[in-house]
């Protein structure tokens, strides 16, 4: 594992710290991606490349445009301009479901578990190429039951890995916020994605679970997947990411290894505005988490 870790980082060794720096083996390349809401330029990314097989963190203050960028890349929103490609396939007008089928699967900042389905049904939904999902073969169970059994087995393995096996038959709506994050991540893995994009996977997760989530994210890379994730917790970013991209006001303002980014003046400016003298790891992580919690609460109340 240590070897792999250094492999991943070694591949990025020669990459410059400039925003949008080219990578030796990019899985995503994009340019001139813009999206405005009213007068507000939520995303204005001149160039972006994500290295294959590493964990890339996307950080930036609230409202920096991280979620919007996720939406654009995965086809959930349409940009005003820009091109981007996944594994060389242009994704300009490709709808979200096709993006996912290509192997690029995302999770949501506000978790989207299917509350009135059981945990195991949530998992089974993730499997791709199901014969039973076609209307006419759905009518006859014999046409899809063996495939369903295989999917269930895979789902059970993943649930066990994410320590959700005890909740197998519970309605997903009854899970805690952290468990929902886990379920969403496990479900995304059912698609067997090449690139998994996690939007704030740690928000609202209690510290004990956080540690195991960290392990899961690392193990994803060790399985050979690429991970792109949005996170506010600087400790976590430093701990697991191989590369960090910093966004502010829609633009990528800096890139680099965790250590170099956290020392970067542009990053400190982006986060703190005028307050230059604070250490970046102390930025209002608490505040940000409280905010995310409030959002989660609001969502739970709605559900």
């Amino acid at each position: 594992m240590a070897a792999e870790l250094s492999d991943a980082r070694a591949a990025l060794a020669g990459v410059s710290n400039e925003p949008g720096a080219p990578k030796p083996d990019p899985i995503i390349t994009g340019s001139n991606i813009t999206r405005t809401f009213g007068g507000l330029k939520a995303v204005d990314v001149e160039k972006i490349e994500i290295q294959r097989g590493v964990i890339t963190a996307l950080i930036g203050p609230n409202g920096a445009g991280k979620t919007t960028l996720f939406n654009l890349l995965t086809g959930f929103d349409e940009p005003d301009s820009g091109q981007w490609a996944f594994n060389g396939t242009e994704l300009g007008k490709v709808p979200a479901f096709k993006v996912a089928r290509l192997g690029m699967v995302r999770t949501f900042q506000l978790t989207k578990v299917l509350a009135k389905l059981t945990v195991i049904e949530n998992m089974r939904l993730g499997a791709t190429g199901q014969r039973g999902e076609k209307f006419f073969s759905a009518i006859f169970k014999s046409l899809w039951s063996s495939q369903e059994d295989a999917n269930t087995k895979r789902a059970d393995d993943l649930l066990a890995r994410f320590k959700l096996d005890a909740k197998r038959e519970d309605f997903a709506g009854s899970l805690s916020g952290g468990q929902r994050k886990l379920l969403e991540m496990a479900r995304a893995l059912m698609v067997d994605p090449e690139l998994i994009m996690l939007d704030e996977p740690m928000a609202g997760v209690n510290p004990a679970l956080k540690q195991s989530l960290l392990g899961h994210v690392k193990s994803l890379r060790d399985e050979g997947r690429t991970v792109l994730f949005v996170e506010h917790d600087m400790d976590m970013v430093r701990d697991i990411s191989d590369w960090v991209i910093v966004m502010a006001q829609g633009q990528i303002v800096a890139e680099g290894t965790p250590q170099s980014v956290m020392a970067d003046q542009r990053v400190i400016d982006a986060y703190l505005g005028a307050h230059h003298d604070t250490d970046i790891t102390e930025i209002d992580v608490e505040d940000l988490e409280a905010e995310a919690d409030a959002e989660l609460d609001a969502e739970e109340k709605k559900a």
Binding site: K112, V113, L117, R124, I139, W144, V191
Partner: peptide
């Protein structure tokens, strides 16, 4: 017959949250 199948599961999931279903391809 169709609602106990994976097809029915997709429909129920769409009812719950269609973006989640979309994100799964």
């Amino acid at each position: 017959a169709v609602m106990r199948s994976p097809w029915g599961r997709v429909l129920k999931s769409i009812r719950e949250d269609e973006d989640a279903v979309r994100s799964l391809g």
